[in-house]
Design a protein around this nucleic acid. Structure first.
Lengths: 115, 115
DNA sequence: TCCTAGGTACGACTTGCATCGTACCTCATG
DNA sequence: CATGAGGTACGATGCAAGTCGTACCTAGGA
């Protein structure tokens, strides 16, 4: 399990979304490759699934026509515990940008972010 | 805190090593930029520190001559809990490749890794 | 049987990124 | 003051990666 490959794979928005959606399903159901709404063409989608496979994040099973992917949850949790939680939380926070905040408590307090 | 930027930053070996070494110090001490043994030239090192800054992982403080970096541990743990543990564990496992294993318990059992 | 949907393989193109040389800056030290 | 160490900015370069078109394959349905 190469951290460089894993982070490299998850640096791409489309690939991160695929893993996040798979991780968000507690039943770990297999999903058809075409069931992900990615803003890319077929050939690119195939490429992304290949990168995810080579990073050890998913397994792909194909039946001549059509193919499906599933998350290697056990493998990931064993080697990189907590990683999937980061992805699912990002996916969840896309829907609810503002949880709620009565007091103007600045979560980050004028983030300098740089030197 | 953009996951894409963070993972992109940590996909590089040199940058991941910097963050891992910073994270491995429980006292969160500031470290001189030159104190990291990276196999790159000065200009490249400057570039890497810039990427880490822009990803929100470190802060850099410079005093005319010389400069030092420190980990934004609170910021990271608040937004991406568990991330630093993955890096410190990778750093630790570089030294001890074989922890010990009496029984031939296969941790991964003939990993297919692909379809 | 023909056609279409879903995927893959291959090559081409374009962009981004890691790397470095060079010039320049600032400070401490001799 | 001159020098050198530590950093940054900028431009150049080479390679990797994302994207896509096209051709081809397989299976299922009209």
């Amino acid at each position: 399990m190469d951290l460089g490959k894993v982070f490299g794979a998850l640096a791409d928005d489309s690939r991160r979304r695929v893993v996040a959606e798979l991780a968000a399903d507690p039943a770990d159901r297999e999903r058809a490759c075409g069931s992900f709404a990615l803003p890319v063409k077929k050939a690119t989608r195939t490429h992304h699934f290949r990168v995810l496979r080579e990073a050890g994040l998913i397994v792909q099973r194909d039946h001549g026509n059509g193919s499906a992917v599933s998350l290697r949850r056990g493998h990931i949790e064993r080697h990189l515990p907590g990683l999937l939680d980061l992805l699912t939380e990002e996916l969840a926070s896309e829907s609810e940008p503002q949880p709620e905040r009565q007091s103007p408590a600045p979560t980050e307090a004028a983030d300098p972010a740089t030197r």
